[in-house]
Simulated assay, not measured.
Amino acid sequence: MQQSTPLRIRQQIRNGTFTKPTSGCAPGFVQCNLVILPKEYADDFLTFCQLNPKSCPLIAMSENAGDFTLEILGVDVDIRTDISLYRIYENGELIRETADVKNIWQNNFMFFLLGCSFSFEEALLAENIEVRNISEEKNVPMYKTNISNSPVNDFKGEMVVSMRPLKPQDIERASQICSQFPKVHGAPIHFGNPLDIGITDINYPDFGEAVTIKEGEIPVFWACGVTPQLAIKNAKPPICITHSPGYMLITDIPNTSLRNNIDIQ
């Protein structure tokens, strides 16, 4: 599956034969976090992304209310069906998860696609830096922190981070690699003691799955695109749709286009 094309994986997601998290899938292509909101909330959320580019790096958004595709994303992309697990929020509360949102789609919806750390994992692997969630075939561990985002009206809350354990000698190189990809969170925001950023137990992530941290390894943390889901709980829009953490939209956009903030549009 890891060698499948983005289009083929999207088709398999759409027909229900692929239902897993997407870390390690379609190497070379951009994966995105998703937020769908009613149009009246779109301006505030866009500003929230612009003020918090580390955790909410905007890749693309709807051109018009009601759109469920965008040409730059790739061939036959449908935002309503091409993610293997969605989350539905009502008034800021998570109501359910589902594999398809066509039946609740509204003509006033606007979608936002945010960069995902899965895109820089390929660059780490190319430098022989192990990515533990891939080698253990798990969903990446993600944690709530005590790092505040810049608020925009009711969109506010703390940053979520993803974690990958690294050997001490790999941390500087990993930071150099990831800093070339600011549209997918860029360099790590912290490494070392999880308590420094409010994580009390590294073995129990808030999202995703725990991975092995071997003796001598150091946990390294990156800003994560699950961050908006906490802001949505505070903003309490009547309805909102997101991806489920770890289940991304795989686009036809090459990862190389994200290096050093190249404009893909």
Rank of each mutant, 00 (worst) to 15 (best):
M1R: 05
Q2D: 10
Q2I: 10
T5E: 09
P6H: 08
I13V: 13
I13Y: 03
I13G: 00
R14Y: 03
N15C: 10
N15Q: 13
G16A: 11
K20D: 15
T22S: 12
C25P: 00
C25G: 03
V30S: 02
V30G: 00
Q31W: 07
C32Y: 03
L34E: 05
P38T: 05
K39G: 00
Y41F: 15
D43T: 11
F45R: 12
F48K: 02
K54Q: 15
P57F: 08
N64S: 12
F68A: 03
L73N: 09
G74Y: 03
V75H: 11
D76H: 09
D76P: 01
D76M: 07
I79S: 07
T81F: 00
D82H: 07
D82E: 08
R87Q: 15
I88M: 04
I88F: 06
G92N: 12
E93T: 07
E93K: 13
L94Q: 06
I95Q: 14
R96V: 02
A99M: 07
K102D: 05
W105P: 06
Q106Y: 01
F111H: 11
F112G: 08
L113G: 07
L113W: 02
C116H: 05
S117M: 14
E121Y: 01
E122S: 04
L125S: 11
L125M: 14
E130A: 11
V131P: 03
N133F: 09
N133V: 02
V140N: 08
Y143R: 07
T145D: 05
I147V: 13
N149V: 04
V152M: 07
D154T: 09
G157P: 02
M159Q: 15
M159R: 12
V161Q: 10
V161W: 06
M163D: 03
P165I: 14
P165R: 14
K167F: 10
P168D: 08
Q169F: 02
I171D: 02
A174R: 09
S175N: 10
S175V: 08
I177F: 08
C178A: 14
C178W: 01
Q180C: 13
P182K: 05
K183F: 05
K183I: 04
V184T: 15
I189H: 02
I189Y: 05
F191Y: 15
G192N: 13
N193A: 11
D196F: 00
I197Q: 10
I197W: 06
G198R: 03
I202F: 10
N203M: 11
P205M: 06
P205Q: 13
D206L: 03
G208L: 12
G208N: 11
E209D: 12
A210E: 12
V211K: 08
I213H: 08
G216K: 00
I218N: 04
A223M: 06
C224I: 06
C224G: 01
G225S: 12
G225Q: 09
V226W: 07
L230C: 00
I232W: 04
K233N: 04
N234H: 07
A235P: 02
P238E: 14
I239N: 05
S244V: 04
G246H: 11
I250G: 00
I250M: 11
I253E: 04
P254C: 00
N255S: 04
L258E: 08
N261E: 13
I264H: 00
Q265T: 12
